[in-house]
């Protein structure tokens, strides 16, 4: 049950927030003018925070139900995780702050933080996801897999952009997937993200690292009880803001 919960929140993160990272990576391609880039970022702004909390919660489940494994994994892959955090924070700061100061140079700096941060986070994910199955070390396989992973994130970002943008940025997003792509492509890339996450997770020694039964007897029912509530709150958010754009 604990493994299913962990998988649920981790897959949720990679499907939902993975597309935000992909859009961030391709920001200079999708938006050629500051105004266009503002619209591209505006398409993910209401959701990026509520998408990334899936990871925060997945890590919470990991700490709670697999504490020893969490420590081994995070300390073993210290540098990739540190890089992930730096990229993640830079990306988020760029999105939050871009619209706060009305100056061209400020916007350019924030956009730079979004693009560089997204790339750094995505490449770090490649190292982490492969390193997870290699005894928490970064080997040759991880270095090869990281750029491949970046391609998947980028494709997923394009798929989301194809659903949420309009005008010239939409044309650019559809150049790869064809004009009628839409939901099918997004479903395909989502499946790809979920598959990668599950394959990487399957290589973790989860079952032998469960927390003490006395802890799980309380923690697991609480988590199971809460999860539908969490999902419901997000569904409400999607339903409200599914069709709107934010001024950036």
């Amino acid at each position: 049950m604990e493994i299913a919960l962990l998988a649920f929140f981790a897959v949720g993160y990679f499907v939902l927030a993975g597309a935000d990272l992909g859009v961030g990576m391709l920001l200079p391609y999708l938006g050629r003018t500051p105004e266009e880039r503002g619209r591209v970022l505006g398409s993910i702004t209401p959701f990026f925070l509520t998408n990334e909390v899936w990871l925060v919660t997945a890590v919470g489940v990991l700490i709670g139900a697999f504490p020893v494994l969490e420590g081994e994994m995070f300390s073993g892959l210290y540098l990739p995780f540190a890089a992930l955090l730096l990229g993640w924070v830079a990306r988020d700061a760029g999105i939050w702050l871009r619209g706060r100061v009305d100056r061209a140079a400020w916007r350019a700096w924030c956009e730079g933080a979004v693009v560089a941060g997204s790339w750094l986070a995505v490449l770090s994910w490649g190292l982490i996801l492969v390193g997870m199955g290699d005894g928490f070390t970064v080997g040759f396989g991880a270095l090869v897999a990281a750029p491949l992973g970046a391609v998947l994130f980028a494709a997923h970002g394009l798929a989301l952009a194809g659903l949420r943008l309009d005008g010239a940025p939409l044309e650019r997003a559809r150049r790869f997937a064809g004009p009628a792509a839409g939901r099918t492509v997004y479903a395909l890339t989502s499946g790809g993200m979920a598959l990668v996450c599950l394959l990487a997770g399957a290589r973790l020694p989860l079952a032998e690292h469960l927390a003490d039964p006395a802890t799980l007897a309380l923690l697991t029912p609480s988590m199971l009880l809460l999860t539908p509530l969490l999902v419901a709150s997000q569904v409400w958010l999607w339903w409200l803001f599914g069709r709107v754009q934010v001024r950036q």
């Binding site: 909390v53 899936w54 925060v56 919660t57 890590v59 919470g60 489940v61 700490i63 709670g64 139900a65 504490p67 020893v68 969490e70 420590g71 081994e72 994994m73 995070f74 300390s75 210290y78 995780f81 540190a82 927390a211 003490d212 006395a214 802890t215 309380l218 923690l219 609480s222 988590m223 809460l226 999860t227 969490l230 709150s233």
Partner: peptide
């Protein structure tokens, strides 16, 4: 977890659960 894995190793059964609850009940 990154810098203080000894803590989760030793006290994870108690300490970890409260952080897990923080993310689910509160932060999410």
């Amino acid at each position: 977890g990154m810098a203080w894995s000894g803590l989760t190793h030793f006290a994870g059964n108690v300490f970890g659960a409260s952080l897990a609850m923080e993310t689910l009940v509160a932060f999410f």
